Amino acid sequence: MKNVARATNTTKSIQSLQNYNEKELFLLYSENKTTEIRNELVSRYLYIVEILSKKYINKGIDYEDIYQVASIGLIYAIERFDINKGFEFSSFATPTIIGEIKKHFRDKGWSIRVPRRIQELSKKINGAKNNLHQKLQRAPLVKDIAEYLECTEEEIIEAMEASQVYTPKSLDLTYDNDGEDKDIKLMDLIGEPDKNFDNIENKEFLDKTIEKLNEVEKKVLIDRFFKNKTQMQVAEDLQVSQMTVSRMEKKIIEKFRSELNKSLM
């Protein structure tokens, strides 16, 4: 029964708030910052959010996301607004909401920094596409857009390609594989480092270091690590003890370690 009574009182409260004008609501909210009053103010000024959000359609971020950010900006504006200063709320709220939208674009927008002229041209292209589509009753060609904006076709293509980095694409993005059963993922189309480059670098390092060994050290290295001979076999060939071969191995390894450290510095 208590919950029913509370719900009834809340409904009556909301209905009574609808009888207040905006100035009276802000005065009431300054005295009693309740969720009900704030929600009523939000509902009355959501039209500002809608108008401002539509200005950023086709800018690379979903309209729903922009609308949510703008709504948060509206709430910030309501919290900061002082009715006693004599300003119109719409004039106060607009820059606050736009500021939140632009901040969101800075955080979530172009994933790679491109020249400002390309960004500006990209915005103009979006508008030109809409206008030309209505005028020509078909999708505009690059040539049409270039003539409309008085640019070269190369500039239009450059801006259109740059706009692809406005938001990063998921590596799990799939493309149709021309009728094949399995679609192709973006990660499958992206190149990967050629392992041969590492092999070339390693070979150059080995050749350079081996040149610094004396003839006996070279023989020990080649016999032990390339011909897979045992220490005893190498010792017999050199007519030295196995212990001597073992010490020479350690000395050779230390030289390689020293050269590697130099190359990394």
Rank of each mutant, 00 (worst) to 15 (best):
M1P: 13
V4Q: 07
R6T: 10
R6H: 06
R6D: 11
T11S: 15
K12M: 15
I14M: 06
I14V: 14
S16V: 01
N19Q: 13
Y29H: 12
E31P: 00
T35A: 04
E40S: 02
R44Y: 08
E50K: 13
L52A: 05
S53W: 06
K54F: 01
K55P: 06
N58A: 06
N58W: 11
K59P: 01
K59W: 05
G60W: 08
Y63L: 11
E64S: 14
D65A: 12
V69H: 00
I72H: 06
L74Q: 05
Y76K: 14
A77M: 09
I78M: 04
F81G: 05
I83G: 05
K85S: 08
G86Y: 10
F87L: 13
F87I: 03
F89L: 03
A93N: 03
P95N: 08
I97L: 09
G99M: 08
K102R: 11
H104V: 02
G109I: 04
G109P: 03
W110Q: 01
I112S: 06
P115H: 04
P115I: 02
I118E: 07
K123P: 01
N126D: 01
K129L: 13
K129H: 15
N131F: 06
L132S: 07
Q134E: 13
L136H: 12
A139L: 12
A139I: 15
V142R: 09
I145V: 14
A146G: 03
E153G: 02
Q164M: 03
Q164Y: 14
Q164R: 03
V165Y: 14
V165H: 05
T167D: 00
T167H: 04
D172R: 07
D176V: 09
D181W: 03
I184N: 02
D188Q: 15
D188K: 10
I190Y: 09
I190R: 04
G191D: 12
D194E: 10
K195R: 11
F205E: 00
K208L: 09
I210V: 15
K212P: 07
K212I: 07
L213Y: 09
L213K: 02
E217R: 02
L221K: 08
I222D: 10
D223C: 12
F226A: 10
K227N: 15
T230E: 08
M232Q: 14
Q233T: 10
A235C: 06
Q239H: 11
K251D: 12
I253Y: 00
L260E: 09
N261V: 05
